[in-house]
């Protein structure tokens, strides 16, 4: 891997992180018939936040100051495992486990930061986030197992390049698209699971946990959220990028795919309402069942079509 490839990957993912939320917002404005904020608005917000001072509640401890940057660090390291242009920067057998657990660490840090404020709303949001994640985690591992089985691969970079050679192969591919879509919607806190533009604290999940953060700390959390969205969309986009492209073309195609998917997310957000909080676990189960079906299909594939 050349230095240029490393740089290209870093710039692509790092650059997409603040842009993609802007694209989603712009799409929603377009559907609503408004002109909307510039696509780079999240990036301007980050710059503004970095120049501000943080305000700390008297209830909080040092943990509250460490948590946002832990979230950022863990999210960045997790994103290194994702292939964008050519092979991923960090790739080893079973890296998908590391990826999931690095996100898990970021999630735990975020929830602890929220609980540190003693705010009832933040506690409620953390509780919801934790509940959804318990259902989502098994889905990711089922999917990784199923795709790994059908494609005989063991790294995340190779898994997103598994395409079908027959009907079962394509079925597994389609099911991974479904699973990853729900995964992105839950993990990146998008509709119909969580409304990033809600104004009511009672209904917040991700926004609820960052209510008390401000200044550079909030910037770190916002950037991490954008990076998480970019990482998830890049994984999803990679499923649609033809296998065997040269790195530069694959990088461009993934980036274009991310932007297109962000427009798709915005469209979904414009056309659907948010689910009731109690209905969200059922929606997450869609991912779990799709991933389970992928495992069954790959087992069937391995049995040579017999049960």
């Amino acid at each position: 891997m050349t230095a240029a490839a490393v740089l290209a990957q870093a710039v692509l993912l790092g650059g997409l992180a603040p842009v993609l939320p802007g694209v989603v917002t712009r799409t929603k404005s377009w559907w609503a018939g408004r002109r909307g904020a510039p696509v780079l608005q999240p990036a301007y917000d980050l710059v503004k936040l970095m120049r501000k001072r943080a305000v700390y509640s008297a209830t909080t401890t040092a943990l509250f100051r460490v948590a946002p940057w832990t979230v950022l660090g863990a999210t960045v390291v997790a994103s290194l495992v994702v292939p964008l242009a050519g092979p991923a920067l960090v790739s080893f057998p079973g890296d998908v486990v590391f990826f999931a657990y690095a996100w898990g660490l970021a999630r735990a840090a975020m929830m602890l930061g929220a609980l540190d404020t003693g705010s009832p709303f933040e506690g409620m949001a953390a509780s919801r986030e934790a509940t959804f994640s318990t259902l989502l985690e098994p889905a990711l591992f089922l999917l990784a197992g199923g795709v790994g089985l059908v494609g005989d691969v063991d790294t995340l970079g190779a898994m997103v390049q598994v395409r079908g050679h027959d009907a079962t192969g394509w079925l597994v591919w389609a099911l991974s698209v479904v699973t990853l879509t729900v995964l992105v919607q839950v993990e990146a806190a998008r509709l119909p699971v969580d409304d990033p533009t809600t104004h009511l604290e009672l209904t917040m999940v991700h926004e609820g946990m960052i209510l008390d953060h401000s200044g550079p700390d909030l910037a770190a959390l916002q950037y991490a959220a954008g990076l998480k969205l970019a990482t998830g969309l890049a994984l999803l986009a990679a499923l649609f990028v033809p296998v065997g492209l040269p790195p530069w073309a694959a990088g461009l195609a993934t980036a274009a795919g991310c932007l297109a998917l962000a427009v798709g997310l915005g469209t979904v957000e414009s056309l659907t309402a948010r689910l009731r909080m109690r209905a969200v676990p059922a929606y997450v189960l869609v991912a779990l069942f799709a991933a389970g079906a992928a495992v069954l299909a790959s087992a069937w594939h391995g049995n040579g079509g017999a049960l």
Partner: peptide
């Protein structure tokens, strides 16, 4: 291969849960 592999993956999902 086949069913055994699928069963082991399901146990992996139990561990993830």
């Amino acid at each position: 291969s086949g069913n055994a592999a699928a069963a082991l993956i399901a146990f992996g999902a139990c561990l993830a849960f």
